[in-house]
């Protein structure tokens, strides 16, 4: 029973650090770059994606024995597109401001590689409960990464945090950081930092307990060569 619990915990936390969708798997890069001009935008995008991800993972996992393998990708896309349309309607009705901010990127959640990628890599071969846990972990990892990146870009580029102007900032903030060029740069630097910290953490952990635990069956991310170079969209 205890082993079962820790396995579930592994599934849940896998997406937050070990297989972080933004910095480790390099999935969903378009909204990551486009909507991190401010921390709040990152949170909105992260939560919308997480909503679709959880529902699509659960539904696809529940239907995994019914969907024929040959036409699974079109089936997944229809399920995801339906969920996104549903969410678009809800947001347009109740949260028009957020609808305005996310704009084009809201319908584009359909082609966000995280959702299709998790459907293909996880939900298609796991139980609904595990798929939901995986989706929550991935969603939290995505939201946290976007928020963090948004905070860095907003702080350097606009001298504000979560939309609140900070006093005592020198004039002429580095506007380039909220422009596309700054997005690419901050993403690259943060990914390098994430890789470096993670590599150090891993080497310390393996030094501490030399017996490798074969408990986590989820994914093997190549540690030596930095990020897995096959970006998620391309493994489909």
């Amino acid at each position: 029973m205890k082993g079962n619990f820790s396995e579930k915990l592994d599934t849940l936390t896998n997406g937050v650090v070990k297989s972080n969708p933004v910095f480790r798997l390099v999935l969903g890069t378009c909204p990551t770059l486009a909507l991190t001009t401010g921390a709040m935008n990152g949170i909105y995008m992260g939560l919308s994606t997480m909503f679709c991800l959880i529902l699509s993972n659960v539904i696809i996992s529940a239907l995994r024995k019914v969907i024929p393998a040959k036409v699974r990708i079109p089936c997944y896309i229809v399920i995801i597109a339906t969920l996104v349309t549903l969410m678009q309607m809800i947001i347009a009705r109740f949260l028009p401001d957020i609808n305005e901010i996310l704009g084009l990127y809201l319908p584009l959640i359909v082609v966000n590689c995280i959702i299709l990628g998790r459907a293909e890599a996880f939900a298609s071969s796991n139980t609904p409960v595990n798929s939901a846990l995986d989706a929550v972990g991935m969603g939290v990892g995505f939201t946290l990464s976007l928020t963090l990146m948004g905070m860095v870009r907003e702080f350097i580029g606009a001298g504000a945090l979560f939309g609140v102007e900070l006093g005592n900032m020198p004039d002429g903030a580095l506007t380039v950081f909220i422009l596309p060029a700054g997005g690419f740069l901050v993403y690259g630097l943060m990914m390098a930092a994430f890789n470096a910290i993670y590599a150090r953490y891993e080497s310390r952990k393996s030094a501490r307990n030399t017996s490798p635990s074969s408990r986590n069956p989820i994914e093997k991310v190549d540690l030596a060569g930095g990020n897995a170079d096959s970006a998620g969209c391309h493994s489909l």
């Binding site: 390099v26 380039v176 422009l179 596309p180 060029a181 700054g182 997005g183 690419f184 740069l185 993403y187 690259g188 630097l189 990914m191 390098a192 930092a193 890789n195 470096a196 590599a199 060569g225 930095g226 990020n227 170079d229």
Partner: peptide, 23 residues
């Protein structure tokens, strides 16, 4: 390239400079 920058990070940095030209 420094080890932590290998692969995607350095590519993103290069993309950033190309993007600056397009500004």
């Amino acid at each position: 390239v420094p080890k932590a920058f290998k692969g995607f990070p350095i590519t993103l940095a290069a993309a950033s400079i190309i993007s600056m030209a397009f500004v």
